[in-house]
Design a binder for these strands. Structure first.
Lengths: 231, 231
DNA sequence: TTCAGGTTTGACCGAATGGTCAACTTTCGC
DNA sequence: GCGAAAGTTGACCATTCGGTCAAACCTGAA
């Protein structure tokens, strides 16, 4: 049902025209598919599903509209592929929380990784946000199954840490909600943050400055002590 | 330029059909305007500007489409009024940060107030979010002027607290970004939170539980100590 | 060279939707 | 009560936009 499923999302600041992971599957017009999906991600993330025009996506991809509809039968199909890819990226970038270090290190790393994700794929973040705000018509099911399981599983770890007094007594799910909220705000609300700070070079002025603050506040807030690493 | 400017937004759980503040200005069809704006807020907040159908707004307000267009010449006009109102609500609910108490109390109150706002006006929150994610085409100017000033002003207070060692050394603006992110996530990402927690009664199960955690994490994270109140 | 499959393209179509309008009804000051 | 202004309504129009299509155009295998 899905189709194209390796992640074709590319970090915002690309250098060459396209740069994909696996060297395989570079069949002639598969490259087109990539161009289209990439363009669609940009447009959908700014205009939402309804605001986006197939024609505009086509222009972004430097293709005639007819061509886009040749690769993706309908606008919805295209949207589905795009959002599915975003969710995939999201879910596995969620990654594992390292259990072989202290809670403080594990969560610091997690936050840093999540923040990097917002930085490198801001459009993906915004698209995800729009989907959810609109009631997650497409990805709702995945949230209810995969994401929920993930949270439940990691929640157990949090609870253990809490029993051991290595983390404050916060409802684990809410700890995640807060982490996600803070890290994603830098992508989703970029416009607002630019407006308030007057930043010109967002990445340099904002992310570099925010990263340590964000980690510090959350780590301290979640009560993650600076443990002595004893072997 | 704006027009209708008292806040006609109503908390989500209304009891009667309508309940507005000032008893004045209840001219015949001003009530209609309210109904329309209210309906429009709901629809716009879920579908975004482009996804919303004038006809659907009309049905929500139990009026024929023609009537809606009688009060608001165009869909854009209506949107502008709605979003303008949301921003007004936002800006003054931002409120003042009480200076006559300890930083801890002042910020706790602020967070609580902001959280209550998300709880009582979730559609407003989502609408605001969508606007910003889309690049804030309408309210950008206000963010650049009013919101920026507000942050700058309150930032000075934060810095003073920091110099006095009563608050951790966080860039003030970013402290706000984090507070806003966390509090708004409960409105904007309600769908996701429901999906993950399986909550049935969102207000009771989520907000009541989240409030203390959110306040605790942020207060601790921002390094706001529990000061002895000496007179 | 040829043939077949995939690809490209612009012209075209029908439905949906924002907005207009003119006929009609209600409201309200006098 | 009366008349003008305000409000109500459904039929209607113009445009926009997703999607179709058929005619060209590659490209590469035989």
């Amino acid at each position: 049902m899905a189709g194209v499923m390796e992640n074709q999302l590319q970090p915002s600041k690309r250098s060459g025209p396209l740069r994909i992971g696996p060297a395989e599957s570079r069949s002639i017009g598969n490259r087109q598919r990539d161009k289209i999906v990439h363009a669609a991600t940009q447009v959908f993330s700014r205009k939402g599903y309804d605001g986006a025009r197939v024609d505009e996506i086509a222009r972004h991809a430097a293709l005639p509209k007819g061509n886009v509809l040749y690769y993706f039968k309908t606008k919805q199909d295209l949207y589905r592929v795009v959002i599915e890819q975003v969710v995939a990226l999201w879910l596995d970038a969620l990654g594992d929380i390292a259990l072989d270090t202290s809670p403080r290190v594990a969560i610091s790393q997690y936050i840093t990784r999540k923040l990097a994700l917002s930085r490198n794929y801001p459009e993906a973040s915004r698209l995800f946000a729009m989907e959810v705000i609109s009631g997650a018509p497409i990805i709702g099911e995945q949230l209810r199954s995969q994401l929920r399981e993930w949270v439940e599983e990691k929640g157990l770890v949090f609870r253990r840490w809490q029993r051991e007094g290595r983390m404050a007594a916060i409802e684990p799910a809410h700890a995640f909600f807060m982490i996600w909220a803070v890290t994603q705000t830098y992508a989703d609300f970029q416009t607002q943050i630019e407006a308030v700070t007057g930043a010109k070079d967002y990445d340099a002025e904002i992310y570099d400055l925010a990263a340590p603050d964000v980690v510090a506040v959350l780590v301290r807030g979640l009560g993650l002590r600076d443990e002595e690493l004893v072997t």
